[in-house]
Amino acid sequence: MENELIQWLSQPGLTHYLMIGALLFCIGITLVLTRRNVIMILMGIELILNSVNLNFIAFSRFSVITLDGHLTALFLIILAAAEAAVALAIVLNIYNRFKTIDIDEISLLKG
């Protein structure tokens, strides 16, 4: 039993990476749920995207499908970049209008 555990620990495989991905995902969700600052929420989203990427790469490494996972991750990264750029532009607009980026106070439906 113990030997097995050590064996399992000493050879990081797919499960290990998936576990890290899962943990990152949960932490990302926690950030998104607990923080009221828009930028912090953005950071949480980046974490979630990273965990997804990690999963893609891990599957791509440990399974027969080889490079498609990489490509998906690549597209995800590009998407994240575009998302961050637009999101930050929006945040700046919000800040200019409301003078705050606390998400609870930005509750007007009408501009």
């Binding site: 990476y17 890290i20 990690l54 790469i57 791509s60 490494r61 990489h70 991750a73 690549l74 990264i77």
Partner: peptide, 11 residues
């Protein structure tokens, strides 16, 4: 770094 360990150097 984990990507590198997964042989995804470009990523």
């Amino acid at each position: 770094a984990l990507y590198v360990l997964l042989f995804a150097d470009f990523i």
